[in-house]
Computed example of a mutant assay.
Amino acid sequence: MKNQSVEVTFMMAGMRQRRRRWVLVTSLLTVLAGVLCCAMLLLGNTIYPVQEVIRTLLGEQIPGVSFAVNTIRLPRMLAGLFAGFAFGIAGYIFQTILRNPLANPNVLGITSGSSAAAVLCITVFHANNSVISIASIIGGLMTVVIMYFLSQGKSFSIGRLILIGIGIQAMLDAVISYLLLVSAQQDIPAALIWLNGSLNGSQIEELPPLVITVIIFTPIVILLGKHLNMLELGEHMASSLGVATNKTRIALIVSSVLMIAIATATTGPIAFVSFLAGTIANRIVGVSFSNIIPAGLVGANLVLVADLIGQFAFEYRFPVGIITGLLGAPYLILLLIRMNRKGEL
């Protein structure tokens, strides 16, 4: 009995330590996101005083400042914050459900479905931004529905889903390449800017769907976070622990797909954010607790940092997706090397 009491005390102490680490890291990520949001509002061709920016945000009209902050910087900051948060959460959910750190909506073809629909609207139908956004959302949703039904056999198979996703991504990427090849020259720049992922031209009127989606579905995936961790143990283990695996998986996939489809429709497919956010969150927090919120915050911070780098670190300004690609590619190589050494590949 005494040995059992010591073991229980040791386990409880370890759990408290892990909880403190989760709270500390999440708090630091929140503070960092706040600092980056302030930087997005303050920095630009003209650096405005903090007092003027605050007065402008409170509704006061200040010549020059009001236009720069309310029309350009605030929509850009909100788009980066909420889109990065959505990408981060969606990537973490897919990596956890599929039990593979390399799995993410980009690899599985979901963002390719959104991209193909958007490029079709830009190059063939010459549609406006609203139609492009709606088509992008529909394209992402149709892609995941097709993937899910094709992956159904006698039982759900992670390997089957990944293989089908990779195949669909290859097909959709070929469609995108064909559309760019046969489209008019004047349509190609707009399509390429969208495909690279960019916060340029973000408008406050286009953000409500993204903001509302993140606000609605984040609590849902948080409530399902405990079941998500059980799904990571495997299908049979989760079922034995009382988890309705199919219902939980569908709810999580639908929530994450809606968030990433609307985020993609708003900013374009920002490369590597959904891949990086979950793995970074697990490394800095640990895997004992649900890292849904830390993954979302890592995603938001990645997008905001990358956009600031793209705006001010080079002679020319680069879209945020190019910077996240430059940051993500080396990390992917290091992860592959590490997994190969551990025999996980």
Rank of each mutant, 00 (worst) to 15 (best):
M1Q: 06
V6K: 07
T9W: 09
M11R: 14
R16P: 08
Q17L: 08
T26R: 04
T26W: 05
L29W: 03
L36Y: 03
C38G: 15
M40N: 14
L42N: 08
L42C: 06
G44E: 02
T46L: 08
I47N: 02
P49E: 03
Q51A: 14
L58Q: 12
E60D: 11
V65S: 08
L74H: 10
M77T: 07
A79R: 03
F82H: 01
G88I: 03
A90E: 06
Q95W: 02
Q95T: 00
R99T: 04
R99L: 00
N100Y: 08
N100H: 10
P105K: 01
L108F: 00
L108Q: 04
G113L: 06
S114V: 10
S115H: 05
S115D: 00
A118D: 01
L120Y: 13
I122V: 02
T123K: 02
N129G: 06
N129V: 13
I132C: 10
A135P: 02
S136N: 04
I137R: 03
G139C: 00
Y148V: 03
Y148F: 15
G153K: 11
S157W: 08
I158V: 13
G165V: 00
I166P: 03
Q169F: 07
A170D: 02
A170E: 07
V182K: 00
D187S: 13
W194Y: 15
I204M: 15
L210V: 00
V211W: 05
T213G: 07
G225L: 00
K226R: 11
K226M: 02
H227Q: 14
N229K: 13
M230Q: 14
L231I: 07
L233M: 13
G242Y: 10
T245N: 15
T248S: 04
L252I: 04
I262N: 07
A271D: 07
F272I: 05
G278V: 06
G278M: 01
S288N: 12
I293K: 08
V298Y: 12
V298Q: 08
V303L: 10
Q311K: 15
F312M: 08
Y316M: 14
P319H: 05
P319E: 03
I323M: 05
T324A: 04
A329T: 11
Y331R: 10
Y331A: 02
I333E: 04
I333W: 06
I337G: 02
